[in-house]
C-alpha cells in the first residue's frame, strides 16, 4: 500500500526525544487458513505494518557524508594503541583494539585513486524490501592503506577481480542509507551514472 504524503510515518528528535508523525501500524484483519482438502481450520495470518526507528549513533557522520559526496572512514590515533594508524572501512566509532574513539577521516580521494574489486557476485534474486535494480552486482572493495574490505554494489559495467572502481554518491535525492554509495569502473562517463548520483 502506498501512503499519501501526509500519512507517511516520519520521526524527528526534539528536546532529546523521538517525535513521530504520520500514520503508523495500520491494522489489517487476520485471515483464516483452511485446509482445502479437509475443509478444516489449520491456522491464521498475522499481517503487520511495522516501522523500526533506528539510530546511527556515532556512525551518522558516515551516512550523512554520503549525501555530500564524501566517503568517511575511521582511524585510530591513540598513541598507546598497538594498532595506531589502522584505518577501518566500514567506519568504526571506536577502535576495536584499544576501544578509544576513532578519528573520522575523509578517504574519498584514496578511494578514487586506489579502490579495486576484491571479489564480487551478480545476483538476480533479492529479498522483500530490496530497493536496488535487479540484477544486483555486489562488489567487495579494497583500498590501499585500509585494513578491511568494504561491501558495495556496482552501478555500471561488469565486475571482475582487480577492476579499478571509483565511488559515486546519491547526492541529489539521498536515502541516507548505505545504498547512497555505489561504484562504477574508473573512467565511466558522468552520463552513465544512475539517476541522482554524482562522482
Amino acid at each position: 500500500m502506498v501512503k499519501a504524503e501526509e500519512d507517511i510515518g516520519k520521526v524527528v528528535i526534539k528536546d532529546g526525544r523521538y517525535k513521530i508523525s504520520g500514520k503508523f501500524s495500520i491494522p489489517e484483519a487476520n485471515q483464516p487458513i483452511f485446509n482445502e482438502d479437509t475443509g478444516k481450520l489449520a491456522g491464521i495470518t498475522n499481517p503487520r505494518d511495522m516501522t523500526y526507528i533506528h539510530t546511527y549513533g556515532g556512525e551518522a557522520i558516515f551516512f550523512e557524508s554520503l549525501a555530500k559526496g564524501k566517503l568517511m572512514a575511521s582511524r585510530c590515533d591513540n598513541e598507546k594503541c598497538e594498532f595506531k594508524g589502522t584505518i577501518h572501512e566500514p567506519f568504526r566509532i571506536y577502535c576495536p583494539d584499544c576501544l578509544r574513539k576513532a578519528t573520522p577521516i575523509d578517504i574519498t580521494e584514496k578511494a578514487r585513486k586506489t579502490a579495486k574489486v576484491h571479489s564480487f557476485i551478480i545476483t538476480a534474486r533479492a529479498g522483500a524490501f530490496n530497493s536496488l535494480k535487479l540484477p544486483i552486482k555486489f562488489i567487495n572493495i579494497e583500498f590501499e592503506g585500509v585494513s578491511t574490505i568494504l561491501m558495495g554494489y556496482l552501478s555500471f559495467g561488469e565486475p571482475e577481480m582487480g577492476l579499478r572502481v571509483v565511488p559515486i554518491f546519491n547526492t541529489k535525492n539521498p536515502t541516507y542509507t548505505i545504498v547512497d554509495l555505489s561504484w562504477v569502473p574508473e573512467g565511466t562517463a558522468e552520463s552513465e551514472l544512475p539517476e541522482g548520483f554524482t562522482f
Partner: peptide, 21 residues
C-alpha cells in the same frame, strides 16, 4: 543492518563472493 542488508536483502550473496574468490 546498516552496512549490508539494504543492498538486496538476500543472504546467499555473502557466500557467493567467497565462492568467486
Amino acid at each position: 543492518k546498516d552496512w549490508e542488508t539494504p543492498m538486496g536483502h538476500i543472504y546467499t550473496g555473502y557466500y557467493a563472493v567467497m565462492a568467486q574468490r
